[in-house]
Design a protein around this nucleic acid. Structure first.
Lengths: 220, 220
DNA sequence: AACGCTTGAATTGAATCCAATCCTGCTCTA
DNA sequence: TAGAGCAGGATTGGATTCAATTCAAGCGTT
């Protein structure tokens, strides 16, 4: 029995997903131009589904469209980035609260492994990938469609800016991030909802305050 | 000197805006089908920009697309709706906190007028329009791009479900909604940020709890 | 030399056309 | 009579084509 892949379907959504992943992997710098023909060629389609994809990504805030002119990978101002961290500070603890009761021992184990791997990680690229994986994995128990989607989109929008940002803070040899991750895993393991929520809110808050101290990341 | 309207531009975004407004006015019931040809004819364009518009509205959660099949005005489950109210409960007080310091006496006056008009409003349709206008007006001072946009989208997604819902709770002659609105205006006038945040969170919270008591609104 | 204008190429926007898929109602059979 | 199977129409998906707009380089003028 073979599973037939649909030959004729929503290429727009597929392309949007592929471009989204490429942006998150850092293959397109913020502010760089996106050409419709380019994407069409790269993804084996005409410009029509590409334009649908760009509309999707625009609605998600990853791409900025200007009529008759073109598309760019979105930039963020410091103010916007701080806003997103403030939103995350209020939403992610709630999401974590939904998730924890559904996380079994195996899930907690892999969270622990991710936190440990992060401490040993050599470069910023690897650290960021693991950090994203760690936090999103901690939310995997939550069956909340809207809240989960909202948080993921916020993560997406801030992710490639953290690349420049984290490079900066890690130069200072700050270990508190790892300490907070360990506290978080511990609270999750004990199913201590209040403590987990508190630690996570503080974790995000401290990142936001760090951000405000490095405005040069957002200049160009 | 005349301002030239662009004859050739982003029709996709324009159509998305018009359809969004139509949905919010209640002209398309949740679950009703949307045909591309229909929209194209109604908005004087071909199906191409209509498809872009549908992608935008899908990303906003107002429309549900199924490949090769069609588009529908999104339905909400009770669980999703409760989620959105929980998100709003955490975000709108924050947004209000940003807004209040920028609201002058005239703005507070029009908020008072809206609250008073709501008390006198005859039908549910009018009440809902005023309620939306009241709350969004209270956020108008906030210069927060991301937070404001997020809240507006959540309002949009829940708005047409409140139609059915509010019809129900108003039959019970509940006056507490109006009382809370007056408390809110009062706190805003005094620039009492903490009190305003507290009242608004409670206001949204009570609406959510009412929701959970009327699951029949979401059956069909 | 600096500024503005013009012309052309590059790019995006939209309409039309054709292919693929889905849905509906009919027919045939058990 | 109920159900499966099978056309035919309706609808969506995508490629091609053409029009409109923008951008940049080159020219001329001051």
């Amino acid at each position: 029995m073979t599973v037939e892949l649909p030959t004729h379907g929503a290429a727009g959504a597929r392309i949007a997903g592929e471009v989204r992943e490429a942006i998150l992997r850092g293959e397109h710098a913020p502010g760089s131009r996106i050409r419709q023909d380019d994407l069409a060629g790269r993804h084996g389609a005409s410009r029509l589904p590409v334009r649908e994809a760009l509309r999707i990504l625009e609605a998600e805030g990853l791409v900025t469209l200007v009529a008759n002119t073109g598309a760019w990978v979105s930039r963020l101002s410091l103010a916007e980035c701080e806003e997103m961290y403030q939103i995350r500070e209020r939403l992610e603890p709630l999401l974590l609260r939904y998730s924890i009761p559904q996380l079994d021992a195996a899930a907690v184990g892999s969270l622990q492994a991710l936190a440990d791997a992060m401490e040993r990680s050599g470069d910023v690229e690897e650290f960021l990938r693991l950090d994203r994986e760690f936090h999103l994995a901690s939310y995997r128990g939550a069956g909340t469609a809207v809240l989960g989607e909202t948080v993921v989109r916020l993560w997406n929008r801030t992710h490639h800016y953290r690349r420049a940002f984290t490079r900066m803070i890690r130069l200072e040899g700050d270990r508190s991030v790892h300490y907070e991750h360990q506290l978080l895993v511990s609270a999750i393991r004990r199913h201590d909802l209040d403590e987990a929520e508190r630690v996570l809110a503080g974790h995000i808050r401290r990142t936001r305050l760090e951000l405000a101290r490095h405005p040069e990341v957002f200049e160009n």
